[in-house]
Design a protein around this nucleic acid. Sequence first.
DNA 1: CAGCATCCAGGACGATACTG
DNA 2: CAGTATCGTCCTGGATGCTG
Lengths: 131, 131
Amino acid sequence: MKKSSKVIPLDAAAICRSSDPMAVRELLTKIGDKWTIFVILSLDLLGGRARFSELERAVPGISQRMLSTTLKNLERDGMVIREVFPEVPPRVEYEMTDLGTSLLRPTQGLVDWAKANWEQVRATQSKYDLR
Amino acid sequence: MKKSSKVIPLDAAAICRSSDPMAVRELLTKIGDKWTIFVILSLDLLGGRARFSELERAVPGISQRMLSTTLKNLERDGMVIREVFPEVPPRVEYEMTDLGTSLLRPTQGLVDWAKANWEQVRATQSKYDLR
DNA sequence: CAGCATCCAGGACGATACTG
DNA sequence: CAGTATCGTCCTGGATGCTG
């Protein structure tokens, strides 16, 4: 499983004016990984509740392994709840928790920023790369 | 708008209701790396302008290599401007751009969320790990 | 002072195959 | 259907040493 057991340096504590700058780093690391935001946002768009295969279809390109891993991490963090139905064939549903939902708002802020500014970022990059 | 040169994965397009979900992923990947937010926030706290060594001290634990790399990426993205003063010993100052500053607001949203909720996340993780 | 060059370890991720 | 197991690759980032 994913855990950052390395208690090391830093912290730029004053920087975040936060009591726990590591919390910020860990949070950013999580939603910064390849699939987490897409899974969260997809689950939200699907009404806050969906089964594995629905998410698989909602997030094109994700492999079963990564969807499984991502959901397991989200469950461990308390962002989603996993519910197993003892049927054949098996059915498993994932539901957003209030905690997970509450993360949606700040996340949306970044999504909006990207929508508004990413074109400019790309342009700047191109210019930079010219030399 | 959409290119088919790379028929790859993505995009959970509807998900983000964004024209470019890759922008979101790239942005998250950037600020999700190990040092970027700390450098950005530090630079802001230092008044939006600082030299290399100041940032080095403001972000405890960062290596010269990573600070250099991070700043170069930020410069490439147009978040900071690098100014070299032809002196001996050399002096280099980094200044936040408006673009970089504008990113601060949504970022702060995540910082606040982490401050408010991370304790709960850790508690949930501990419970999860017990079984 | 403000870096760059090099080397290296660990983890993230993809592809594929198998299962209750 | 909803995963797990295994393997291999690439990339991030740490450590160290050198330089204009």
